[in-house]
């Protein structure tokens, strides 16, 4: 390995440029995510489709960020295809994991909502005080003697 050639210096300058470009992209993506997060605060809870659309966009941006970190910061893009495949192919299992488990969770909720009265009624029980700080105080006051419940 020799480190003294001109080609190396050129390569280093190019790599440096790439780092700053990727840093910029990651920053912009994070800012967009945060902007969406702030925007979502004002979307009412019962507007499911709108909220889910924003959440979906955030997840896509998250995956884009993951791609840039793996491809450029972790240098995966410059590796041999064999190496990329031995790590990427097993990770495709996640596609199935995510779909299967989230579907399962959702189905469990629906089944309990249909057949389990206790579970269904739970969502009707309001928390004692809406203001968190007050709720905390109440919990703290109750905590020493939980048997009183």
């Amino acid at each position: 390995m020799d480190h003294t050639t001109n080609a190396h210096a050129d390569h280093a300058a190019e790599a440096r440029k790439e780092i700053w470009k990727v840093t910029g992209i990651l920053t912009v993506l994070t800012i967009i995510e945060l902007a969406l997060g702030f925007y979502m605060m004002n979307v009412p809870l019962d507007e499911f489709s709108k909220r889910n659309f924003i959440k979906g966009t955030i997840v896509i941006l998250m995956l884009a960020k993951a791609f840039y970190i793996i491809a450029y910061f972790m240098h995966m893009k410059h590796e041999v295809k064999n190496l990329i495949m031995t790590t990427a192919v097993p990770l495709t299992l996640f596609i199935w994991f995510i779909i299967a488990f989230l579907y399962e969770g959702n189905s469990y909720k629906n089944l309990r909502n249909t057949y389990d009265g206790h579970f269904r009624d739970r969502k009707e029980i309001k928390a004692p005080v809406k203001e968190e700080h007050e709720a905390v105080k109440e919990i703290k006051a109750v905590e020493p003697k939980p048997a009183a419940e």
Partner: peptide
């Protein structure tokens, strides 16, 4: 790389479990 892949599965399992429970909660 192989270690990180296995670690990704560990974190993935945690996060998917979180997602499952969140989806199953009202």
């Amino acid at each position: 790389w192989y270690f990180l892949m296995s670690d990704a599965f560990t974190f993935g399992a945690f996060l998917i479990s979180y997602g499952t429970i969140r989806f199953s909660s009202v």
